[in-house]
Amino acid sequence: MEIVESTNVYAYKLITKKDYFAPGHRACQGCAEALAVRLVAKALGRNVIVASATGCMEIISSPMPFTSWRVPWIHVAFENAAAVASGAEAGMKVLMRKGRVPKRKITFLAMAGDGGTSDIGVQALSGALERGHDFIYICYDNEAYMNTGIQRSSSTPYGASTTTSPAGKVIPGQITWKKNMPEIAVAHNIPYVATACPSYPIDLVEKVNKAARVKGPAYIHILSVCPTGWRLAPELSIRAGRLAVETGVFPLYEVEYGRYRFTEEYLKIQGRFRHLSEEMIDTIQKRVVEEYEKLEKKIKMTEGD
């Protein structure tokens, strides 16, 4: 998968210099989840209300009397970010309808980690997606309960050693496969689902912007490398995310109204492709998928050589 970033390094300068997620937060050194939050906050700007689940990002950003949030932010509990965002969205909608708050576009963002999303928060999330609230849900997936000390979640990949799936003498770490949370979101027939990774900041920002434009629920699953939990040198966390994407372990894709596509930003950013019609983009997309599948087959055929 070719990603936009490699085509033009100067594109980073296009992203706003404003940070709505302030420095001085207590995330570990090299935390790519904090980076993902920073990029999401940049993408959404000031007209947002954030409902956060309990977890690393909540702990590191709000130790009283300090806050890293320059936008309105609420944390209630672990499993209910989607429900709190539902309430904020519904409440604001009715207040604007009744003329008690001036009408304007406000984006509602619910955010949680992989535990708060695919385990304990999956019910509240499913309810909010099904009810069709106009909000974005972002799962920052660092593939375990990092805040409580690297315990396995249903999002921990097969084989990974965690503190509750240790690489033992009999059982070699996590023995289950990573739950496919984006697919679960897709099954709710919502307008927009995407995967992203802060190793690809422009792609991530674009997807968050697209999610904000969508009317109705949008779900973005962001692979967020955790150097502490992944037993990785902190300077390697961006590289690790890139490798996850490049090797196909964590493919970047979008699902718009049930239609799957690899990230089209590659085409969009280049003037030479700007003229393409939807049909032509689809043709290219189809070909990319075919070629990718062929490549996968070849990899399989030559396995063990």
Binding site: Y20, A22, P23, G24, H25, R26, Q29, S61, S62, M64, P65, F66, T67, S68, W69, R70, V71
Partner: peptide, 18 residues
């Protein structure tokens, strides 16, 4: 409600000490 009303005041915290 122990609400924090100074947005982004974590920038007073010197994480550079780490």
């Amino acid at each position: 409600g122990a609400t924090l009303i100074t947005p982004g005041n974590s920038c007073e915290y010197k994480s550079g000490d780490w």
